[in-house]
Simulated assay, not measured.
Amino acid sequence: MNDTQARIGRRAEGNRRVGRATAWTAAACTALATLFGVVFATGTTDAQSDTGTSTSTGSSTDGGDSLQAPDSAPEQGSGSAHTGSGGS
Rank of each mutant, 00 (worst) to 15 (best):
M1D: 11
M1K: 07
M1N: 08
M1R: 10
D3P: 01
D3F: 06
T4Q: 14
T4L: 15
T4A: 15
Q5T: 11
Q5D: 13
A6H: 09
A6W: 05
A6G: 02
R7Y: 01
R7T: 02
I8N: 11
I8M: 13
I8P: 02
G9W: 03
G9V: 06
R10M: 13
E13Y: 05
E13L: 15
G14M: 05
G14K: 00
N15R: 14
N15P: 01
N15H: 09
R16I: 06
R16F: 02
R17W: 02
R17N: 07
R17T: 03
V18I: 14
G19W: 04
G19V: 01
R20C: 02
R20Q: 04
A21P: 00
A21C: 02
T22H: 01
T22W: 01
A23C: 03
A23G: 06
T25V: 08
A26V: 14
A26Q: 07
A27N: 05
A27I: 15
A27P: 02
A28C: 05
A28H: 00
A28Y: 04
T30V: 14
L32G: 00
A33Y: 04
A33V: 09
A33N: 07
T34C: 13
T34S: 11
L35Y: 09
L35K: 00
L35W: 10
L35H: 03
F36E: 08
F36Q: 07
F36W: 11
G37R: 01
G37I: 00
V39Y: 07
V39S: 03
V39Q: 10
V39G: 00
F40Q: 04
T42C: 06
T42F: 11
T42I: 07
T42A: 07
G43R: 07
G43H: 00
T44A: 11
T44N: 07
T44V: 13
T45N: 05
T45G: 03
T45L: 06
T45S: 09
D46I: 10
D46Y: 10
A47F: 07
Q48H: 09
Q48T: 13
S49G: 15
S49Q: 13
S49Y: 08
D50I: 04
D50P: 06
D50C: 01
D50Y: 04
D50S: 14
T51R: 10
T51A: 14
T51N: 15
G52I: 00
T53G: 04
T53M: 11
T55F: 09
T55E: 10
S56V: 09
T57W: 11
S59G: 13
S60C: 06
S60Y: 01
T61V: 11
T61R: 10
T61G: 09
D62C: 07
D62W: 00
G63S: 04
G64T: 12
G64C: 06
G64Q: 11
G64P: 02
G64H: 10
D65Q: 12
D65A: 14
S66Q: 10
L67K: 03
Q68A: 14
Q68V: 15
D71C: 00
D71P: 04
D71H: 02
S72D: 13
A73H: 02
A73W: 05
P74Q: 05
Q76C: 05
G77M: 01
S78A: 13
G79Y: 01
S80W: 03
S80G: 06
S80T: 15
S85K: 11
S85H: 12
G86P: 04
G86D: 14
G87M: 06
S88T: 08
S88P: 15
S88K: 06
